[in-house]
Simulated assay, not measured.
Amino acid sequence: MKKIIVAFALCFLLVSCGSSFQSFYNKHKADIGTTSFQVPNFMKAVLSNISPGVKHAIGNISDFKYIKFQNVSALKRQSLISEMNAITNTGFTDVFRKNDLANTRIISVGEIGVVVTDVIIFNSTETETTAYYLQGNFDPEKIKSFADEDTFNAFSTDLMQSYQTNINPSFNPEN
């Protein structure tokens, strides 16, 4: 009986460790055609300087990861969608999910009580696949607003510009 319990616990551990956003990120961050970044603890100040629009939309962030895939084959795209489905099926609740041939959009949250603490925003089109992982305290209604494609695209653009501005200091003394 003990062997069965140990085997079951080991299988559970392996499955749960294999289906996290961090493992997805680590697996794909070096793929050709991929842009990715995560904000380490010592750079949390960068997040406090994001634009007011982004800060209002997402609130208080303690962890942030981003990965973007460009020019992926249909097979690779389907593989990424399947991996994201596995991640969001373990401890997350879908706020919004759209699955069709041209676009797959997933907004999935992790909650403690009525507080949204983890958010995965995944968008995959025939030309580009992006995924965000945010951890902190978030307004559920604002997270749900990312289901709108224009809101999601504006958020992505604003967040990327804010992040790139804060991590690319000018080495020109006249600036």
Rank of each mutant, 00 (worst) to 15 (best):
1 M>D: 12
2 K>A: 13
2 K>F: 13
2 K>H: 15
3 K>S: 15
4 I>K: 14
7 A>W: 10
7 A>C: 14
12 F>C: 15
12 F>G: 15
13 L>Q: 12
14 L>Q: 09
14 L>A: 15
16 S>R: 11
18 G>R: 05
21 F>V: 03
23 S>K: 13
23 S>Y: 11
24 F>M: 09
26 N>W: 01
27 K>Y: 07
28 H>C: 07
29 K>I: 00
31 D>F: 07
34 T>Y: 06
35 T>V: 14
35 T>M: 09
36 S>C: 09
36 S>F: 01
36 S>I: 01
37 F>R: 00
37 F>S: 03
39 V>L: 05
39 V>F: 02
45 A>C: 01
46 V>A: 12
46 V>P: 03
47 L>A: 06
48 S>M: 09
48 S>C: 05
49 N>T: 10
49 N>S: 08
50 I>Q: 11
51 S>D: 13
51 S>L: 02
52 P>E: 09
52 P>A: 10
55 K>T: 09
56 H>Y: 10
57 A>N: 10
58 I>M: 11
58 I>S: 04
59 G>P: 05
61 I>H: 03
61 I>P: 02
64 F>I: 05
64 F>S: 13
67 I>L: 06
69 F>D: 03
75 L>I: 11
75 L>S: 12
77 R>M: 00
78 Q>N: 15
78 Q>T: 02
78 Q>L: 08
79 S>Q: 12
80 L>A: 04
80 L>K: 04
81 I>S: 02
82 S>Y: 07
82 S>N: 11
83 E>Q: 15
83 E>G: 09
84 M>N: 06
85 N>Q: 15
87 I>L: 05
87 I>H: 09
89 N>Y: 05
90 T>C: 10
90 T>Q: 11
91 G>C: 04
93 T>D: 13
93 T>F: 06
94 D>T: 03
94 D>C: 01
94 D>V: 02
94 D>Y: 08
94 D>G: 02
95 V>R: 03
95 V>F: 07
97 R>P: 00
98 K>S: 08
98 K>C: 00
98 K>W: 00
99 N>L: 06
99 N>F: 03
101 L>S: 07
102 A>F: 01
104 T>F: 00
105 R>H: 09
105 R>K: 10
106 I>S: 03
107 I>A: 05
108 S>I: 03
108 S>E: 08
108 S>A: 15
112 I>R: 09
114 V>G: 02
115 V>W: 02
115 V>L: 04
117 T>K: 11
118 D>E: 13
120 I>F: 07
121 I>S: 11
121 I>V: 14
122 F>D: 05
122 F>M: 02
124 S>D: 00
125 T>R: 00
126 E>H: 02
127 T>A: 08
129 T>S: 04
130 T>Q: 10
132 Y>R: 07
133 Y>R: 02
133 Y>S: 09
133 Y>N: 09
134 L>Q: 07
136 G>P: 08
137 N>L: 09
137 N>E: 13
140 P>L: 02
140 P>F: 05
141 E>K: 13
142 K>T: 03
149 E>H: 01
150 D>E: 11
153 N>M: 10
153 N>T: 10
154 A>V: 11
157 T>I: 01
158 D>W: 00
159 L>S: 13
160 M>N: 14
161 Q>G: 03
161 Q>H: 13
161 Q>E: 12
162 S>T: 07
163 Y>T: 06
165 T>F: 08
168 N>Y: 01
169 P>I: 11
170 S>P: 06
172 N>V: 10
172 N>G: 00
173 P>L: 13
174 E>I: 12
175 N>Y: 13
